[in-house]
Design a protein around this nucleic acid. Structure first.
Lengths: 187, 187
DNA sequence: TTATATTATGTCTATATTTACATATGCAAC
DNA sequence: GTTGCATATGTAAATATAGACATAATATAA
């Protein structure tokens, strides 16, 4: 059971999902491709943490809907209590900023503008997800569980939004530093 | 040549360093252990991007000081121009927040407080690095290159500082949400 | 006096991640 | 009509990362 496995269990506590839906749904939380996810689902099923039901479809390929078991919930519950490991961030931009003096200031500006544009599109995506989450809560948020899951999602999405805003702010600030000529003009 | 290799080259453009110093110095930029770094240095030397000089020491183990070659600088220069791939963030806390409803609110609060404490210590470390960088610039910042490298470092460290501040802000906000009881009291 | 930390370089194994390969249906655009 | 996209599930191979094993000097703390 690696971190991603617990993450899949976490998604399945809200509602049963297919491997395909898990691959899509995990995107705001963790980076993982379907080739990682399908084998982990098989492994967790053999451990008894999840079960699946095969749904035959005529128009689209058949699918497997995975449901978390009581045992799966209990192992997740134990894991959630454990302190969270420090986040791992791997960003090429760190190295590119560090090597700034090797580039023309215009190139550096372009790098930062590209990153800012990407972050803005991510921010839009997260804002859409927050709206969808609110709609879900308002529509069928009668039960305590659903209120609680939409609250967890709300916290997580706000975390991503705040991180994206900070990253955009950094890009804009750094572009300003470059333009204001913190470096002597001949560089 | 993977991303980490280019990162090592980036560090070596500022001044020659040993594998050990690279292992320490890369920490604010990328997560990597020495077992990753030593083989990459050997590989880059065989490609002609770096060279080393062995320094014998009687009190401490001998060391190898690596210097970037003209060819190494030019491959790095080409790489820096390329657009930066999106950052990869892997944070267990995402899954733990998503699973919040499985935990007691007190446990959730503890998770967030632990993360905030860790981030504050990281913030302190970065502030020290910024001061050291400023001291370096003021002491022997006569050359254009040194000014430019300290500027690159300055941008990078500010990026980390802004990200840490945003993360601390999130933790404090989320703890507040938990305390303010956005969830019905019986949860 | 023994244990631990720092400096210093390396290998090996296990695990995690990425990318490509593989197959299949239906729908829309061109 | 065929190219590409969304749905859907899988495997295989290559690469990256983490953790353990290995050695060795000196200094410091318990």
């Amino acid at each position: 059971m690696n971190t991603l496995s617990y993450g899949l269990l976490a998604l399945l506590t809200a509602n049963p999902l297919t491997g395909y839906e898990l691959t899509q749904g995990i995107k705001p939380l963790w980076r993982a491709g379907h080739s990682q996810i399908y084998p982990l689902l098989q492994g967790m099923e053999s451990k008894g943490y999840i079960t699946h039901e095969r749904i035959e479809q005529s128009d689209k390929p058949d699918k497997k809907i995975y449901t978390i078991t009581r045992e799966g919930i209990s192992v997740l519950q134990e894991w959630v209590k454990l302190p969270a490991e420090p986040a791992v961030l791997r960003d090429e931009l760190h190295f590119k900023l560090y090597s700034l003096w090797l580039t023309e200031p215009e190139e550096a500006k372009t790098l930062l503008q590209q990153r800012a544009a990407f972050n803005r599109s991510e921010l839009d995506r997260y804002n859409l997800l927050i709206k969808a989450n609110e709609a879900l809560r308002d529509e069928r948020g009668e039960t305590r569980e659903l209120k609680a899951t939409t609250f967890g999602r709300y916290l997580l999405l706000q975390k991503r939004v705040m991180a994206m805003k900070a990253s955009i702010e950094f890009c804009e600030w750094a572009i300003g530093e470059l333009e204001r000529g913190s470096l002597p003009p001949e560089v």
